[in-house]
Amino acid sequence: MTDALAFGLITAIAVGLSAGYLGSLMVLKKMALVGDALSHVALPGLGLGILYGFNPFFGGFVFLFVAAALIWRIERVTKLSVETIIGALFTLSLAAGILIIPEFELLEALFGDISKVTLESTVIAVAASVVAALMTRIIYKNMILGMISEELATSAGVQVARTNLLYLFLVSLTVAAGLQVVGTLLVGFLVVVPAASAKNLSSNLYKYGVLSSAFGVISAVSGILLSDYFNLQPGPLIVLSGVAVFIVTIIIRWAAKAPAL
């Protein structure tokens, strides 16, 4: 096994686990397309990293972080839906990113390049994923209560607005970590499809959280191994692996003919 493949697999495991777990909340919040659209906001940051020679992760993360704060604030002031605000921000970012990033590197930014994963970027991605997953674990209960009823959560002492902001920051962190594995175009997959697959098979939150993380890891790892074997782009293969898992869960659910296992 080459160093690049080993680093790629370690990164994929960390990012797959973290994205799957965070995504389990995103799917319940009916923000499935938010992760996808939000990932495009990183593009100008990646471009600046490529242009000025610093780690594109940091550029992407700063843009995502600022975008998360803006989305949260604009939503509170205007009462526009999060999807609408992200829709405006992501097209703006996409336009800026395409203008900033040289044509050759644009493909890498859009689809990721696992062959370029280094020890440094692996450490950064693992650290970011671990922090994001642990913080999500801490706020999971408050997020769920806020989704069930804002008033119920408030009466239990939950600060719903602050929790939502923290969650958006954690999504930014996870998306930034996933950019180098699958790129800006496909990273949204990692926060949506594994959780959607898990929801097909879950009757409680514990099972849902565990399966979301597990399916995230399975999709990312199998995609990278297939990419190494067939010498193809890993991003699309990660997506195809995850979709295969999703289809299997639909068949299991359908075969069981029950609300959940």
Binding site: K141, M147, I148, S155, A156
Partner: peptide, 25 residues
């Protein structure tokens, strides 16, 4: 200390068991 029982709950799409919900409190 205030306990609150809301009029509407969004629980149909959330796979949360009664035990998990009660454990939160």
């Amino acid at each position: 200390k205030i306990g609150y029982v809301p009029q509407k709950l969004s629980v149909s799409d959330i796979p949360i068991s009664v035990r998990e919900f009660m454990l939160y409190k």
